[in-house]
Design a protein around this nucleic acid. Structure first.
Lengths: 347, 347
DNA sequence: TTGTAAGCGTTATCAA
DNA sequence: TTGATAACGCTTACAA
């Protein structure tokens, strides 16, 4: 809050020579107030540069007109696309937005949630780190309206909107196998992060269906950002040289940003993508189509996720009795040029 | 706010059998309170799942522990890189963050500012739409601590951190001219947006220094995003065919996202970059190095801008007497492969 | 060591 | 048509 005398209805009242409750009514256009006094009060308020103190309003009305958004990493275009739709809608509806990133970290997520509750947000949209975490109960027990995106608490009746990550891992792996890849490196997300687990499950399922033996040394965890992916891949590629038995021909990544990191490492190492190493992404962020070679990836409809989540939340806010909405979106493979067809080469 | 009975110190007081002010003191570890009662109170508070109402705290203390961030478009990686550093720092310092995008629109910006002031943020970081806008005065007159980034109010003593956009436009144009380009299309930002104006000035300055006549039909305005750039470029390329006199050989863009839009349009139109059309970006966002061809652009140190701005703001918050800090950063040309050298081809 | 009471800036009820 | 007053949940003198 600013240190200078902040203008309140009391100050206006003094200047206008009326009681402060008259000012309050005049300002909100209460018909009980005389037109003349109303105009005078409004004019003075304007001159004094008055704007109401939302803290006081919130304390009284028990409505803050602000929504809390907790995402994992807004510097990832996947999340910023979701963010954008939410932000625009919120603006139009006159809400403001408290925002924070959890960085795939349960501790941070917990503090973020507590902060949101303490700040009394009217509703929350959250991309939870883990489906089983106590953090989710924090939100649910607070009875603050919430929508879970990207993943949602398991076996609990809540609103959610997300893509079937298991299916994504499954179809991505299928595609790689169909192209003749047998040794696939999975550069997965962090451990204890549910969406990584689902993605892994899908991957395993495909492997199994194709009678391919999963190899734990071909499954690595990695923060979904360029730097981490870059470093991991360089290390992995070195290891690959030492253990030819593990020589992977393709990498499946948990996110396009991870794929970008691999592109960068490959460029430094002089590795040809896809000839020496195929890459599949996840998310279909804007840059995946521009990179070289254009990235084959799994699409997530980010804008629709954002739109759905905020629409559901706002509906819940206006209609107490509404049932929870549950939306699961099927992922789609987007074929571009980052996967080599091994069988045709060998043929 | 949640509709259920929210737990307050009064409720705890009732359960604990003490007065509510005793609870308040116990909770904040006041040494005047007996150890036993303190422990009992804390235990009960935990059991009841108590967390303080920030609205009430703010009303009393005149501190909200939240910072307002107003950026133009957080879905642009330029801004999300800045955001990220700010968000992480804020989290570490125990602040929360109210965020909103202005979308290069003065009306929206005004509402955003009013909202931040009304919500009584302790400080503001803003990337203003225009250096001369009244919106800036709104912030300054409120005497809320603020840091201006990307551009700053003209002739007013404030904190700011930004890159010399004029210089950026200047060195980019110089580079293009050095490579033999004489007809350069400037795909600039929106009108009435100061950073576009500075960029244009730099462009003009370079043209003039090289005795090249500026052509107003070679200066176009465009929202700094992919879609707008894509559409503009297609239209422009058609026009170029009709008026060969205007046939540009290069495009200078106000942002890498605009360059991406051109890449997309070029790919649809079957235009070879850089042979048929050179492109220069601005910002050096992460994807500019991965695209095909890698984009020649002007670097802005986004993380440093973010870090500086939040550090300055937090310092101002803790030290009343501090003088305003003013940081101008010199842009740097990053040469990659999106510019063809016309002179060598012709030679 | 604990309790009482005033006040932060609003809103809303009731009196005048 | 206007004004006095209580209340929202908390902090903080001050009194007990």
């Amino acid at each position: 809050m600013n240190s200078e005398r902040t203008v309140t209805i009391k100050q206006i009242a003094k200047v206008a020579g009326v009681s402060f409750s008259t000012v309050a009514k005049a300002l909100r256009g209460d018909p009980a107030i005389n037109q003349k006094t109303r105009k005078r009060v409004v004019k003075i308020a304007g001159e004094l540069n008055y704007y109401p103190n939302s803290m006081a309003q919130a304390l009284r009305s028990k409505k803050t007109q602000t929504i809390g958004i907790i995402l994992n990493d807004l510097s990832n275009p996947f999340f910023s696309d979701i963010y954008k739709v939410i932000a625009d809608t919120l603006y139009q509806k006159g809400y403001s937005m408290l925002l924070s990133d959890s960085n795939y970290n349960l501790e941070i997520e917990k503090k973020n949630i507590l902060m949101m509750l303490s700040k009394k947000v009217d509703g929350i949209i959250v991309s939870p780190v883990n489906e089983n975490s106590q953090n989710n109960s924090l939100i649910i027990n607070s009875s603050t309206k919430a929508v879970f995106i990207d993943i949602s608490p398991k076996n609990i009746d809540v609103n959610y909107v997300f893509v079937n990550h298991e299916k994504a891992g499954y179809i991505a792996t299928n595609y790689l196998i169909k192209n003749g890849h047998k040794k696939i490196l999975l550069l997965n997300g962090p451990k204890n992060v549910s969406f990584s687990e689902y993605f892994l499950n899908g991957h395993m399922k495909s492997l199994k269906e194709h009678s391919l033996k999963p190899d734990s040394s071909l499954i690595m965890n990695c923060e979904p950002n360029i730097a981490c992916a870059h470093d991991s891949f360089i290390e992995l590629w070195e290891g690959r040289k030492k253990k030819p038995a593990l020589a992977f021909t393709a990498v499946l990544t948990i996110g396009d940003l991870v794929a970008m990191g691999i592109y960068e490492a490959a460029s430094e190492l002089g590795i040809d993508i896809p000839e020496e190493c195929s890459v599949v992404g996840y998310d279909n962020i804007f840059s995946s189509k521009y990179c070289n070679p254009p990235l084959t990836t799994i699409h997530q409809p980010k804008k629709r996720i954002g739109k759905w989540s905020i629409d559901i939340l706002l509906k819940q806010l206006s209609d107490e009795s509404m049932e929870h909405e549950k939306i699961i979106i099927e992922p789609e493979l987007v074929i571009r040029n980052s996967v080599a067809a091994l069988n045709t080469i060998k043929a």
